[in-house]
């Protein structure tokens, strides 16, 4: 407390040393300035980051193409991703087949966007599963701390230490070779990173006075974790989520490349690359297009994730 205040206090004074100030004198309580919410601020920071916005536009464009291109192309030309047309095999890019055709004469343009569907789906699904498990597990670890944290953290560490490929291969033995298996395999260890991020954030936030105030009101642990703490940890969570997607997409491609991916005729960028690799020198377009789009989307997602991280970082604020 400052000195000026103290001076006002006369020892043993009977009179009120403080002038009572009523409510809303001259509209003094009214809020004039319309200040930005935290989210508006983040959005503005993001807008100013050109590279990351380019990344975002790329992702949106690729996602839109993945959703609509196979369907629209099918309507116009009758091409689909599965019907073989051996007479047309290994055609280079042309007006009829923009991206050429593969060894079974299937249109690469349609297959590339079909592949985008699978790749993006795997990336997003794996990231969302990581998100849910990571938030719950990490939230509980971070909030309760102590023995609970120690035990749960030990379990996470053990899982994390198991070689990832081993888990996948073992899983492939007991489960059918399918998209579900790939996603499950990725999720077994994928959530741990998210859980650690959430745990750190919750530990940082749990002794904030707003959390204590909620506890004082009688709120239960779950209410405090999910209503108060998680929303305030959304920045790092979103960044981690965004950066998980390209990782999962790459893992899917990698597994496909090893022959553990989705089964033909369904295409993912990974299986297409694997398939194209066999004729890389003679029919380069068969590997070029899926590889190019995989690289571009991973790059775009990473750039966007980094931009998001910067936008959330208060040190970047002007």
């Amino acid at each position: 407390m400052s000195q000026e205040m103290n001076v006002n206090v006369t020892p043993g004074a009977g009179s009120n040393p403080f002038e009572k100030i009523g409510r809303d004198q001259n509209g003094g309580e009214r809020i004039v300035r319309k200040s930005l919410t935290a989210w508006q601020n983040i959005r503005r920071n993001l807008y100013e980051n050109k590279l990351s916005m380019v990344g975002l536009y790329f992702i949106i464009a690729i996602a839109l193409m993945a959703i609509f291109a196979p369907w629209v192309t099918g309507l116009i030309t009758g091409y689909n991703y599965f019907a073989n047309e051996l007479a047309n095999a290994n055609q280079p890019p042309s007006w009829a087949h923009w991206f050429g055709t593969d060894d079974l004469g299937r249109d690469m343009w349609v297959r590339t966007w079909k592949g985008a569907q699978i790749s993006l789906f795997v990336g997003i699904a794996a990231a969302l599963i990581d998100l849910v498990i990571g938030i719950v597990y990490g939230g509980i670890m971070g909030y309760f701390g102590g023995k609970v944290d120690e035990t749960m953290n030990r379990i996470a560490e053990i899982l994390y230490a198991i070689p990832y490929l081993l888990v996948v291969i073992l899983l492939m033995v007991v489960m059918p070779q399918s998209l579900t298996t790939i996603i499950v395999a990725m999720s077994i260890t994928g959530w741990i990173n998210m859980a650690w991020i959430v745990r750190g954030e919750i530990m940082r936030l749990k002794n904030q006075e707003y959390a204590l105030a909620s506890k004082a009101l009688g709120a239960g642990s779950m209410r405090i974790i999910f209503r108060h703490l998680i929303p305030n940890a959304m920045g790092p969570i979103l960044v981690t989520l965004t950066l998980t997607i390209p990782g999962a997409m790459f893992t899917e491609a990698f597994l496909s490349f090893l022959g553990m991916g989705v089964k033909s005729p369904v295409a993912s960028w990974g299986t297409m690359i694997d398939n194209g690799r066999q004729a890389m020198t003679t029919y380069p377009w068969r590997i070029m297009f899926p590889a190019l789009f995989l690289a571009v989307s991973m790059f775009a997602l990473n750039v966007f994730g980094d931009g998001l991280r910067d936008a959330f970082d208060p040190k970047m604020k002007k």
């Binding site: 935290a38 006075e209 707003y210 204590l212 105030a213 909620s214 009688g218 929303p231 959304m234």
Partner: peptide, 21 residues
């Protein structure tokens, strides 16, 4: 139930209100 009887006003007015609510 007892918490309705006793409450607390906190030290830091900038940390005691959840910024997201």
């Amino acid at each position: 139930a007892q918490r309705r009887n006793m409450q607390m006003i906190f030290q830091d007015p900038f940390a005691s209100l959840n910024p997201r609510m």
